[in-house]
Write a protein that binds this DNA or RNA. Structure first.
Lengths: 153, 153
DNA sequence: TATTTACAGTACCGTACGGGTCCGATATCC
DNA sequence: GGATATCGGACCCGTACGGTACTGTAAATA
């Protein structure tokens, strides 16, 4: 169903929460998990990936934690998705060339690439700052999907 | 990585192959599998889903098989994806409302919905007829992903 | 009407990813 | 410098999906 993975929406929620904190403030994984109302291990894993990708800055030791590495307006949904689930590509050949033995005669790849580019553009157009509640509002951000009962269709 | 499922790219390849046949011609699952160079069981399952969704017409018994239910120009990528993997929705709440207990205070859903709509529009814009090889050309369509060695990252 | 062909549905199995735990590394504070 | 807090990485487990096999049903032909 062309869905982003769960870790991605967790990540988006976390980024939004961090973005609503005062500039440059650092929060521990525990605090972030509490705010997002998600299990600590899940949040922890998500934070690690975001830090590895350079979207978050991590500080170890006591009083350590995570903070946004740059302004929310400079973090796009595409950045977050790429960090959390790898390069955006609808099909294998959109990302890794040479996997398909018939690329030379394949007539599908071109049109797919077009779709892929449009999707990436859509995701690059939206930044974390656009996900924030209205300044002064107290709307807290909660994961979009429930943890269980993930029935489909 | 925001990827369509394997069954979807199989399906797209199959639809393209069928579309390059003379209008209304019927092919058996076995023939279709041979042309796409895919295992028969996989092709069979894919064909069943496409038929259930009304994209293909099926005919049972001897001389039976599958044929496009309408012109290739009237079958979009969105149709195929929806038939094969369910409604297009990047997140659970894009498809099923009421799954998330905090929808009322969620500020993320709006922007996500926008992205979702743009992606759907991209997928609705491209039809199977645009995937065909140039008329008279002999480029045969082969699945875009290899069956094995599906390594990632 | 018997036989053959081919689709329809159900059930099964293996793998890969999401989710979780544990231990090591590192920075702060006393 | 020792104790504590926190991140980083490796490993483990359960579930869900892709892939497969089997049985049932319908149509064509002789």
């Amino acid at each position: 169903m062309l869905r982003v993975s769960k870790i991605t929406d967790h990540g988006i929620v976390i980024l939004s929460n961090l973005a609503s904190e005062p500039d440059g403030s650092t929060q521990s994984a525990r605090e972030i998990a509490a705010e997002a109302r998600l299990p600590l291990p899940v949040v922890s894993k998500t934070l690690k990936r975001l830090a590895r990708a350079g979207i978050l800055e991590s500080h170890r030791g006591a009083k350590g934690g995570y903070a946004l590495a740059r302004s929310p307006a400079e973090i796009t949904l595409a950045d977050a998705i790429t960090a959390l689930e790898g390069p955006i590509g609808l099909m294998e050949c959109s990302v890794h060339l040479g996997q398909c033995s018939h690329e030379s005669t394949c007539t599908i790849r071109g049109p797919w690439q077009r779709v892929n580019d449009e999707i990436r553009a859509s995701l690059e157009r939206i930044t974390i700052s656009e996900l924030l509640p209205t300044p002064g509002g107290d709307g807290e951000l909660i994961p979009l999907r429930v943890a269980s009962g993930d029935r489909r269709r």
